[in-house]
């Protein structure tokens, strides 16, 4: 199910890009195409920032999400101001938009990590059981 959803999102993104690319060719750049292109650029920047944070920051999950929340909100605000999405009076809306996404992402991420750990530990336990069942071949001693 997860893979189908992921593939559906990628396909939707490709469809949007294709439709708007053809639209640009036929009718030139419109407000809608500018908005879509800006959203893709914003998504690229946020994904890059997320990748860098995952690579270089090693913190507890709550702390990582807090850091991500403020970093991504900062990026959205800056990008929003440059693109003219926000007025000085409503820039704080970025906190709500980003917060809503992260509130959804946090439990999904936590659940996924829990399942991944369970899977890995189960495989280790099964491997150890197999090794214990065949004591003549002490695989661990033969390992590099």
């Amino acid at each position: 199910m997860k893979k189908i959803l992921k593939d559906a999102c990628i396909l939707a993104a490709l469809m949007i890009l294709s439709v708007f690319a053809i639209s640009i060719i036929w009718s030139g750049i419109t407000d809608e195409t500018v908005l879509v292109l800006r959203l893709f650029v914003l998504a690229l920047i946020i994904s890059s920032a997320n990748h860098i944070m995952d690579e270089y920051i090693s913190l507890p999950i709550i702390m990582i999400y807090t850091v991500k929340y403020f970093t991504i909100t900062g990026i959205v605000m800056l990008f929003g101001f440059i693109s003219g999405w926000f007025y000085p009076s409503n820039f704080w809306m970025a906190f709500i938009y980003v917060g809503a996404v992260l509130v959804l992402a946090y439990p999904i991420d936590s659940f996924r990590i829990k399942k991944d750990i369970e899977f890995i530990n189960k495989q280790i336990a099964e491997r150890d059981a197999r090794e214990a069942a065949s004591p003549d071949i002490n695989e661990k001693d033969a390992r590099p």
């Binding site: 090693s58 990590i113 829990k114 750990i117 890995i120 530990n121 280790i124 661990k140 390992r143 590099p144």
Partner: peptide, 16 residues
């Protein structure tokens, strides 16, 4: 080397 991995632990729902 995963051959020597005993388990993955999540310490208090945070660090792995």
């Amino acid at each position: 080397n995963t051959d020597h991995l005993k388990e993955i632990k999540q310490v208090k729902n945070s660090r792995l």
